[in-house]
Amino acid sequence: MTDISQDPHATPARRIKWGRVLDHAILIVGSLFMLIPLLVVLQTTTTTDIETIKNGPELLIGTQFDDNFMKAMFKASGFSGENTGTSMLINSMILGLGFALGKIVIGMMAAYALVYFRLRFATFAFWLIFTTLLLPLEVRILPSYEIAQKLSLLNTYTGLIVPLIASATATFFFRQYFRSVPEELVEAARIDGAGPVKFFIDILVPLSQTMIAAMFIIMFVFGWNQYLWPTMVTTEEGMYTLVRGIKQLTQDLEGTNIPEYGRANMLALIAILPPVAVVIFFQSWFVKGLTESDK
């Protein structure tokens, strides 16, 4: 009997929980799978293009990081000399912000109208908006392009952003959220003399902070990564966004020049950073909003 109970603490510690090991193995493999391409990109930004061509990806960290960075940010690739990394970054930023904010503003206002006003056919209107989910930009790209062109919106920020911002998704989420706001809050505000506009700005918008943050994360990344539409509406190099501009660089690779691996990969890295920053920043904010639970 004493034999068995000799070391009561050791037994559970020594027992290996295979399920947990498996979980971790899956997670580790998964993150390696995601990270290795990034690391390769990072490595190529530190060596010269010739070296990259000769040796392919290596474990070695080179000295060309600064050089590649300067080239990526400030050297133009096209004929006009306007599509430097900096200008593309600014364009992408404008697209991402405009896309996200536009979708949030439009979605909130549409949801506000649907939830708080006694509209005839409000439910019908909502479903109509909802069915536009079945018609993403790719489906209606030709007519959209034609309209943008007829309104001379090609190569403008308006043309880049506005055709994209009508959003069934944002409308849907804000509608669901507004419906969960207690009725009495509206009534108290009415008695307190807040009209529809004041109620929206003073009460509904601050209450929706967490929802807005969540929408912003999703929509900013979505807008930032837009490729097809920017490719169609921007032909002037000064209007190129990063995602589209990188494509331009890789097209150069097909020519007879030495491909600019370092520069292209550096731009790719730069293109990743803002969405990552937005996610990290708003995520903490989002979680804070959820845990403080105002409602």
Binding site: P182, L185, E187, A188, I191, D192, G193, D202, L207
Partner: peptide, 30 residues
């Protein structure tokens, strides 16, 4: 007449306080 113009004040069962405003702002909002 609109509720705001009836010169009334109402206290609700669940209080209906504005959750994002301080007590000071809640009381002063009207």
């Amino acid at each position: 007449v609109d509720p705001a113009d009836r010169d009334i004040a109402m206290v609700f069962q669940n209080y209906a306080l504005y959750p994002h405003m301080t007590v000071r702002k809640n009381i002063g909002y009207g």
